[in-house]
Every structure is written in C-alpha cells, then in structure tokens.
Design a protein around this nucleic acid. Structure first.
Lengths: 136, 136
DNA sequence: CTTGAACCTATAGCCGCTAGAGAGATTATA
DNA sequence: TATAATCTCTCTAGCGGCTATAGGTTCAAG
C-alpha cells in the first residue's frame, strides 16, 4: 500500500496526472486511508505503468482505455490491439514525413547569411510561400 | 477590399481562426462595412499569408508576433529571425528523433503474430517497459 | 504535541483553434 | 422591390492532456 506520492515517484507520472487519470476512468478509485488519502496496491502500480508506457508511445487516452480493457481479457483475439498499434504507427510515420519536410525548409532558410531583415531569407520565405521547395 | 470569407478562401485560413488572430493581436482590426462586417485590403492578405506560412512551419503565435515585428523593420539585423528559425529547427529535429524511436518500437510490437491477448507483444510490451529496445 | 511535508477538493488556465447559438448584413434572383 | 439564400456578427463553451493555484486536512517524525 503506498501513497499517491510514492506511486508518482515509482511510475514517473505526476500526482495531478494520476488524479486526472482516475477522473477519466483509466484507473479505478483506490482505497482510502482513514483520513481520506489514496492508498494504492501493486495492481494500481502495474496499471499506471501500462498507462504511462502507452502514453509514451503516443496512444490517446481513449486508445488506452481500449488497450487496458483488452489486457484484462487474455483469451480474446488480439486483432484489435494490432489494429490500434498499426494505426498509431501510420500516424507516427505521417508525422515524421511532415516534420522532415519542415526540417528541410527550416535548414534552407536558416542557411541565409544576410545581415539585415531586408535580405533575410527567413522573413522573405515566410512572406512568400512560392519560395519554398517542398509542400507543407 | 474583401470580406472575411474571401480572405479565408484566398489564404486557406478558416474564418474563426482569422478572428482569433485578430483577438490575439497578430492582425490589426480591419475596416468595417456600414453593416459592421470586416473588410480587408491586400496588406491584410499579405500579413495573413505570412502568418499562415509561419504556422505551417510550426512557429508559435508568440514567435510569429516577433517575426512580424521584425518583418516591419527591414533595416534591422536579422540575428533574431535566425535564432528563432534555428530554435525551431532544433525542436523539429528533436521531435523527429523521438518519433523515430517510437516508430521503431511500434514496428517491433506490431510484428507479433500471436492470435490472442495472452501472447500478444503489443499488450505485453505496454505492460513492461523493460521489453523495449529503445528509450522513450 | 508540534511541526512541516504530503495530501485533499475544486476551479481555472494552457495552446491553437473549432463549434454552436441567435441575431443582423449582404447579395442574387423573381 | 420583395424575398430568399448565404454571409457575417458577437459571445460562449469545448477539445486533449494535462498543469497550477488556493485554501484546507492528514500524516509521520522528533
């Protein structure tokens, strides 16, 4: 049995975030001490670790609700879990692609060595999208 | 002189977003028609295009305020503009790096071909960070 | 028993929009 | 000119995923 502060330290999830997850229904309301403070078990720790890890991989709160539900039913097929991971992967890949285009553009405009705004590629490019090399 | 709808079509910025930018002080309050509707000039169009393009490159509203201010003073040195672009570039690169680690992890867990949750790498990995290959 | 750290609830704020309600303006057609 | 269809106006609230603050209570160590 540990306090919310302990749980926070052990999982790396901040205290208000833990309470937020409780509100969102990701974790069950835990037992309370006589003075009404939350007391967590090892199960609570496991569950929160799962959540934290899922968040780190970019799953939404809603996705995580689904994943947690699945994880409680080991006999179920795992198609749904795979689908979620696959969608997540697609999303991540799309974002990488987009950021790479931005990186390209930012590198290009940062390369300008003018010394005043009038000749500065940064400002000039922002003012005129036509000067860009890639779409975005 | 065009209406907010026209401006929206020409720049690709949605109407409520234009009003939001006005509220945020990125664009000046434009003239109004007799019936109190906004009427924009070509200058307004230019400014909004600048803003839109900056947003596409990921600059924050605050950054854009600075960039717009700079763009109004062509005689100033462009060090500040370069610094902002450089910071932006760093940020983009950091995000790419992080997303690539996620991509790696998601690919790995998606590769599992178990057919029930009990043996599914997706769920198993989420439950135990120790199974991951990279940091995140 | 006292102190100070940790905890409680409730509410508001962050960013960058987006959506909706309910009213008024403008424009196109009959 | 009347009317209908489409814009536009302001105001307020909501999104996701937290984070911060205020004002109070409880816990554990000395």
């Amino acid at each position: 049995m540990f306090s919310i502060g302990e749980l926070s330290k052990r999982t790396g999830v901040k205290i208000p975030t833990i309470r937020y997850y409780e509100q969102m229904g990701l974790i069950a309301a835990p037992e309370r001490s006589e003075g009404n403070q939350r007391r967590y078990s090892k199960d609570g720790l496991k569950r929160l670790s799962f959540i934290r890890h899922s968040r780190q991989l970019g799953f939404s709160i809603d996705d995580i609700r689904g994943l947690l539900e699945l994880s409680q039913h080991p006999e179920k097929p795992c198609r749904d879990a795979h689908n979620m991971a696959a969608r997540r992967l697609e999303d991540v890949q799309a974002r990488i692609a987009k950021l790479k285009r931005l990186e390209h553009e930012l590198k290009r405009i940062s390369g300008c060595d003018a010394d005043n705004i009038a000749d500065c590629a940064v400002i000039e490019t922002l003012a005129d999208h036509g000067l860009c090399e890639t779409d975005h």
